[in-house]
Amino acid sequence: MARRENPEINAGSMADIAFLLLIFFLVTTTMNVDSGISKKLSEKPPPDYVPPIVKERNIFEVNLNFRNELQVEGERMEIKDLKEAAKAFIDNGGGEGKVENGVATGPCTYCKGEKSSESSDHPNKAIISVLSDRGTEYGVYLKVQNELLRAYTELRNRLSTERYGISFDELEEAYKSDRENEALKRKVEDIKTAYPQIISDAEPTSSGN
């Protein structure tokens, strides 16, 4: 008897098997890209380190107590107002900048602040000091950090738009995708030195609890 032609293999259930695998991977997938607020810690000071004396007007004091209440320069403040206050402080430009590598940076030419003699001299001298309590909630602490960073970001964006026509975010983005580009690198460095982020975390107090 002549063999009958081979019947085709039924592939109908292949889809079911593939679906099963698909659902497995769907469930186990975690697609979240880790993101966060990056910070660079200061190095451990040597034991005989004497902190430099900084003029009172160049320090922007931010205090957070264990009840998550915010105090800025001795006055109560809401977190939503912090950004503007920080911007006003950084951008004040009331005096001479610090001496960098033997070259005095002179007064801040790009600042748009009030040039008050009560507030900071120059963005590169302006120090934001965050003092929090051990009992402060981390979420609030991070929100404060975020607001302070936002102040810097807005100032940097403004300066970058003035000087180069694009915002600092876009500039950094462009530099990230083209690390070899010297011109971009110079621009990024330029903006960064114009508004350096100087946020210091003081040793927390442990009142309350």
């Binding site: 880790d34 993101s35 966060g36 607020i37 990056s38 910070k39 660079k40 810690l41 200061s42 190095e43 451990k44 957070l64 929090s132 309590d133 051990r134 009992g135 402060t136 909630e137 981390y138 979420g139 602490y141 991070l142 950090q145 975020n146 975390d201 040793e203 927390p204 442990s206």
Partner: peptide, 26 residues
């Protein structure tokens, strides 16, 4: 809802071993 104290403890220990780049995940 963690406390800043805990984070500070970690941060001080990180500084001791010179692990200076940190990221607060958010």
């Amino acid at each position: 809802e963690s406390n800043v104290g805990t984070i500070t403890d970690i941060r001080l220990k990180l500084r001791d071993v010179n692990a200076l780049k940190i990221s607060y995940s958010a």
